[in-house]
């Protein structure tokens, strides 16, 4: 009997702690598969965030460091400066990256740190039970915006890719989704491109994944995907926001 499919060795046997129906699991696995396929497992150091993916250090089988909330790009900077030839990535959520860690995100981009940031945007603080996030949509009902997000009161959502594309030093910025097979396959290529950029020492790559949170959105996994397509994708359009290699080719 021949093996036609097996789990990537870049994932350990630790059970993923994500809620049923959450698309974090797909993203985690895609990152792991690409590292494995590119033969980078032995030379990669991953940085785990605080949030739903805090236990990423148990999931990925490469060396891992768990960072304080929002500080993953700073920790990654320390690793990369000490080991410029190793592969370094962070895996962060929206609260981590776009609220408490905004400065670390922007400045790692401005320095052109040669790292990959994988940013999972589900428009909510999942781990702590569904509070309003920097990326929650106007009107979105959360535990701490029970009457809907009033942007005049609790601020406007931050579009991370659009912002990071303006930062000189970032090399590749793309927003993808994992809501259907086509998009999952494309997301994987975006991850591969990010690691390739790092290998070619182009600077910082950031891939944003629109992701679901059925538990805290209060929707079934299927309805959550529909809500993502109808609402998140409308506010956060998919696409490449920056690609310095394409710009070089165009010249």
């Amino acid at each position: 009997m021949s093996i036609v499919f097996k789990k990537t060795s870049m994932l350990t046997d630790a059970p993923l702690s994500y809620c049923p129906g959450c698309t974090h699991g797909i993203i985690t696995r895609l990152v792991a598969e690409v590292i494995d396929e590119m033969g980078l497992a032995g030379e990669t150091i991953g940085i785990a965030p605080v949030g739903c993916s805090v236990l990423a250090y148990n999931f990925f089988s490469c060396d891992m460091i768990q960072a304080p909330h929002g500080r993953a790009p700073a920790v990654a900077t320390g690793v990369k400066r000490a080991h410029p030839d190793k592969t370094v990535f962070t895996y962060q959520g929206d609260g981590d990256l776009a609220a408490i860690g905004t400065a670390e995100t922007i400045h790692s981009g401005a320095r052109g740190e040669n790292i990959c940031i994988f940013f999972v945007n589900n428009a909510i603080y999942g781990m702590t039970g569904g509070q309003v996030a920097p990326t929650s949509l106007p009107g979105q009902v959360t535990q701490t915006t029970p009457y809907g997000r009033d942007v005049k009161y609790s601020g406007n959502p931050i579009r991370v890719c659009e912002m990071m594309a303006t930062v000189t030093g970032t090399a590749y910025v793309e927003r993808v989704a994992v809501d259907c097979v086509k998009n999952v396959r494309h997301a994987k290529e975006a991850i591969r491109k990010a690691f390739t950029m790092q290998q070619e020492k182009k600077g910082l790559s950031l891939v944003e994944f629109l992701s679901t949170c059925p538990t805290n959105w209060g929707l079934t996994p299927v309805k959550a995907l529909e809500w993502l397509r109808e609402n998140l994708m409308a506010y956060y359009p998919l696409g490449v926001y920056k690609d310095v290699t394409a710009e070089e080719e165009a010249k």
Partner: peptide, 23 residues
């Protein structure tokens, strides 16, 4: 490496990264 970080917070976390990776 001499790196002026964006904040004291970032600087100590860069130390965590460099120190945690053995430097």
């Amino acid at each position: 490496t001499y790196l002026q970080a964006e904040s004291e917070i970032a600087a100590i976390n860069m130390v965590l990264g460099a120190g945690g990776s053995g430097a």
